[in-house]
Amino acid sequence: MIDQQPVAEFQQVVKDYQQGLFGLDRLRAIDGVSLRIEAGETFALLGPNRAGKTTLVKLLLSLCQPTEGAILRFGMSSSDRSTLARVGYVHENQAFPRYLTARALLEFYGALGFLSEPTVQERAPRLLERVGLADRADESISCFSKGMIQRLGIAQALLNEPDLLVFDEPSEGLDLAGRQLVRDLVREQKDRGKSVLFVSHVLSEVELFCDRVGVIVGGKLAFVGPMRHLCTDPKTGARTSLEVAIRPYYEGAAAPLHTS
């Protein structure tokens, strides 16, 4: 059964990174972001480079701590790591221990995900088959191409059958079949009533399957709302492409925050 509470909630979150000698300088990466990702929805996070998208993802995954505000996962504080068992994460530049085989890697991450040994043994071969690595299961990762490592990263993210799948630039290094795999996975996740947080610069993918979108610029949310609202000209009501719709936000020409 899917919970009706949001799978992720950011409440007035601020994140400052310490910089410079002795960490005395501060760089504000996230500036007062409030955002909810509902159960069962596919949410896209867009924004130019260094806008704060990855920081927001890291905050959600407890990879860094907020300077101010609170983050909830499945209604619980992000300091409660047990809720991470319901999250799958695909990182844009995954670096796995090169001495492990593909099968051993899944078993390793399954163990750290607190899955039982029989569960991992049952799911690992199925997932390797799903991402097209079944015939390379017992090969060392050191022989894998970037695309294969990315596929393996997708498999490890699916190991716990997550209620929230976080894709941070998942198509990085993937060939056409790999990109199709990502699309199929998002669709399957959606069909099962589970949530996806999608961070990508590939707007065609975002346009294809995301329900709502958040545009973050300079650490602030510039837009949060359904995709159709973003892609509709408020004056004429004409439908535009996502690329055209988000350009004013990227160029700083749009209003600071527009929510619908």
Partner: peptide
């Protein structure tokens, strides 16, 4: 570390 520390362990 990003993948390792994003696990519930």
């Amino acid at each position: 570390a990003s993948v390792l520390l994003a696990k519930p362990a």
